[in-house]
Each structure stands twice: as C-alpha cells, then as structure tokens.
C-alpha cells in the first residue's frame, strides 16, 4: 500500500477542515445552547442527571424481606432469542 498517498489524502482533508474550523466552533456553540431539555432519539438527554448524592435519610424502606422475584419482567420480552423461542425469559 502507498503510505504517502494515504496520508497525503488524509492531511489534505484535515487542512480543509482547519480552514473551516472558525465556522464549526460557532455551530457547536449553538448546539450546546439548544441541547437543554431535548432528548434526541438514540442519545440520552443532556439535561438528564445522575445525582446519586443526598444528605437526607432514605424516605422509603429498602430492606423489606425480599419478596423474591426470580424472573425478569421487563422489556426483555421484546428481545427474541433466535435459536430459542422468543421472549422465553419474559
């Protein structure tokens, strides 16, 4: 393979990209602003949060005797196992 050819082509595109970079930054900043509160399909919402920390005591009881649910009962029934029967576990 021609190393020079591959790299020259790639860096040619990078040069073009660098000439556009001023505009690209402006567009990115606009995206940032618009990001608030929207959840684009397939992406998690950028305003979603993972606030695990609190300084309060737990309001709900989390140590009830385990009413043991042995079988998953969620959306796993929408995932078909091709070689077995679909939704067997759901």
């Amino acid at each position: 393979m021609d190393r020079r050819h591959v790299l020259t082509a790639a860096f040619g595109s990078l040069l073009a990209m660098s000439l556009m970079s001023g505009n690209a930054n402006a567009a990115d900043k606009m995206n940032m602003e618009k990001c608030w509160g929207i959840a684009k399909a397939g992406h998690n919402d950028c305003s979603s949060n993972k606030s695990a920390h609190s300084c309060a005591g737990q309001a709900t009881k989390n140590n009830d005797p385990m009413d043991f649910v042995a079988v998953p009962k969620g959306t796993c029934n929408k995932i078909a196992h091709g070689s077995l029967e679909p939704g067997k576990a759901g």
């Binding site: 399909a41 919402d45 929408k78």
Partner: peptide
C-alpha cells in the same frame, strides 16, 4: 438505543 428516552416502545430485537 431502543431503551433511550423518546424511543418507540413497541420494538422487537432479534438476538441473532
């Protein structure tokens, strides 16, 4: 992807 907010609930995925 099928489990992200705003995605349709009636999906079916073939594990194979």
């Amino acid at each position: 992807q099928a489990h992200q907010p705003g995605m349709p609930e009636d999906f079916l995925i073939d594990l194979d």
